[in-house]
Design a protein around this nucleic acid. Structure first.
Length: 460
RNA sequence: CGCGGGUUAGAGAAAUGGUGUCUCGUCAGGCUCAUAACCUGAAGAAGGUGGUUCGAUUCCACCACCCGCAACCA
């Protein structure tokens, strides 16, 4: 579900930019390297490549499932182009003197047959094998001189007031960087973890997964082959990254340091979402049985309904709960009783009394709406739409065109036309939020036809 | 005193230094164009203690509770 949230929010912003005429390059991708993938594939008895090839289908499915823009670019970190980009990037960073080889001491739990990080240990022991002493194993890894980037990063943060959205995440990040940075291991011995991108000039090592994965942001816009596209969208554009709050450091600190190390311009903005939780703010987890599958929601209610919930009911940046109960409630209120019913009552009148759809003005979306979206206040933008929906319902009640039209046809037609036009504006504003509904509603209005079946059927 | 976030009606959210807004739910009334929908009205709320202020839900301090993070899983 968290994945769906990021996908849909990024898509809404991309659609907003497209709507105001910006040239949008919208990208998403999958990390396909790393030990998790490798182990899982081994478990299934297939090659890692076969495994990720299978997984990628889910990803393409979700484009439809979540109503994501069809011209989205999609990068896989196992793409040859990405592999080349990652190696090229590595060389750049290495040539600039920010990569070195160092002995790396790992703690290995013989009980789990796994390396353990300090944060995983409890009182110096593996929590699952508290009696078993940890073995220390040594290996040579490549390290990235992250520590040298404290100052440059802080300078970057100072020079870009809105570099990380929202502000409180930015503060959090700044504190982290101010607290001092340590160099990171960025490679693994191939003999231990063969599924990764080979380190240039060293066949015995592969890149550590996040190092290669982060490069996808520039690989997708052409780096290093198509520098024209790269220049257009990365150097001269406003490359904006979306991530969950758990990913802030990787995107807003490490990746930025890596870009500096390679002598490339930084990202423009990092937008950080909160997490979706289950009932009561607890984590969604299979063991607790509180997982809600976005695909099931989209199947039953449609992608627009899912999007509407994720964009309108989920907080912009804080954690928010997603439960089936809340979803249904919101669906019935916002879509069935609200938007759907409103469209139905207006279009029934217009089909009956108007000869054709009244002339539609070229532009009618208020600039305040775009202002909200430019600040990533998607929730606020939705509030604005639903405020208009409510106001229109109210106006119909008060002006009673259904009554007036029987006494004074011309006056009644005038009232109905006004309502149709307002409905059209609402439909337009739905473009970034609910792209299908935006289309369907505009078509109905132009054809002066009431919906044959309810736009959003009430569910009990 | 490791860092950060949160605490607003029964539930979920928003805004705000001066009548506290929205959605769901509850109660009463209205309308009939509409998807048993829609409109109006009512009841119902700021964790605690101090401080700044003419005035604090909003700013500050402290306390309580909840939640993230604390770096090689991304």
């Amino acid at each position: 579900m968290g994945h769906a949230l990021e996908f849909v929010r990024a898509d809404a912003i991309a659609r907003y930019h497209a709507l105001v005429g910006d040239d949008v390059f919208f990208n998403s991708g999958t990390d396909e390297h790393g030990s998790k993938i490798y182990n899982k594939a081994k478990e299934l008895g297939i090659s890692p490549q076969e495994f990720v090839d299978q997984n990628v289908k889910d990803f393409y499915d979700s484009v439809k499932m979540f109503g994501v823009m069809e011209d989205i670019h999609f990068i896989r970190t196992s793409d040859p182009h990405h592999v080349k980009a990652a190696q090229e990037f590595w060389k750049k960073v290495s040539d600039n003197g920010y990569i070195y080889k160092k002995n790396y001491e790992a703690k290995y739990c013989t009980g789990c047959e796994q390396e353990k990080t300090d944060s995983e240990l409890v009182d110096g022991f593996c929590p699952e094998h508290p009696g078993v002493a940890l073995e220390k194993i040594n290996e040579e890894n490549y390290f990235f001189k992250f520590s040298e980037f404290q100052k440059p990063l802080l300078e970057l943060y100072d020079s870009r007031k809105d570099f990380v959205i929202p502000e409180f995440r930015f503060n959090e990040l700044r504190r982290f960087v101010e607290g001092g940075l340590q160099d990171f291991s960025i490679s693994r011995l191939k003999t231990k973890m063969p599924w990764g991108i080979e380190v240039p000039g060293d066949e015995s090592q592969v890149m550590y997964v996040w190092f290669d994965a982060l490069v996808n942001y520039i690989a997708t816009v052409g780096y290093p082959d198509d520098m024209e596209t790269f220049e257009k969208y990365w150097i001269n554009g406003t490359p904006t990254q979306y991530c969950g709050k758990d990913n802030t450091r990787f995107q807003a600190a490490m990746w930025q340091a890596m870009l500096l190390a390679a002598g490339l311009p930084n990202s423009y903005q990092i937008v950080v979402n909160g997490h979706i939780t289950a009932e009561g703010g607890v984590k969604m987890s299979k063991s607790l049985g509180n997982v809600v599958d976005p695909k099931e929601i989209a199947d039953e209610y449609g992608s627009d309904a899912l999007r509407c919930f994720l964009l309108k009911e989920i907080s912009n940046f804080e954690d928010s709960p997603f439960t089936l109960e809340r979803f249904k409630e919101a669906y019935n209120a916002n879509l069935a009783n609200g938007l759907g019913n409103l469209a139905s009552r207006i279009l029934t009148l217009s089909e009956k009394y108007l000869d054709a759809c009244p002339p539609i003005p070229e532009k009618s979306i208020p600039t305040e709406f775009f202002d909200l979206l430019s600040k990533y206040d998607i929730h606020g933008a939705c509030e604005m739409i639903w405020h208009r929906i409510n106001a229109l319902d109210k106006r119909i009640q008060e002006t009673a065109p259904f009554k007036v039209v029987k006494e004074d046809l011309e006056k009644g037609k005038e009232l109905i036309s006004e309502n149709v036009l307002e409905l059209y504006t609402i439909a337009r504003m739905l473009n970034p939020i609910m792209p299908n509904t935006n289309k369907v509603l505009k078509e109905l209005i132009k054809a002066n036809k009431k919906p044959e079946t309810p736009l959003f059927l009430r569910k009990d």
